[in-house]
């Protein structure tokens, strides 16, 4: 229905599900991404019970304000070609980014997105 209403703009559709087990069905119906508040709630409560203070980290990351640290996905067009040409490992890439770290907008590498998959802190 959303696609039909906005044929020209091709909106990127985020759907919320109560039960994540229906994720594939929802994606099949046209959702680009699926979120589930219940799944996140349980995960944050569990993590915070195990590692006290963890809920504050998620809270910080979910705030969308100026001068707040957020997660960004930097795509190929904004990454220096040398990262690909030199076949950098994750560790090499993190080192390079750390060397360029500047006070106005310090950057920390936390993962790689390959296709639809996000790999945080990948092993070699």
């Amino acid at each position: 229905a959303i696609d039909k209403l906005a044929k020209k703009t091709k909106p990127y559709i985020i759907a919320e599900l109560m039960d994540r087990s229906n994720k594939e069905l929802t994606e099949g119906a046209g959702a680009n991404e699926v979120v589930s508040a219940g799944f996140y709630r349980t995960g944050i409560m569990l993590q915070s019970a195990l590692y006290h203070g963890m809920s504050h980290i998620f809270h910080e990351l979910l705030q969308y304000e100026q001068n707040k640290t957020s997660v960004f996905i930097v795509t190929e067009k904004n990454i220096p070609q040398e990262f690909y040409d030199e076949k950098l490992t994750f560790q090499d890439a993190a080192r390079k980014i750390n060397e360029k770290r500047k006070a106005p907008n310090p950057v920390i590498l936390i993962g790689v997105k390959r296709g639809d998959q996000i790999i945080l802190n990948p092993h070699s």
Binding site: I73, V74, P80, D92, N105, V112
Partner: peptide
């Protein structure tokens, strides 16, 4: 994970969209 390949994107923490 071996190395960064063509098409890979990087996931980072920053205050603004970064220039790498």
């Amino acid at each position: 994970f071996d190395h960064i390949k063509k098409g890979d994107a990087l996931v980072v923490l920053a205050e603004k969209f970064p220039k790498l």
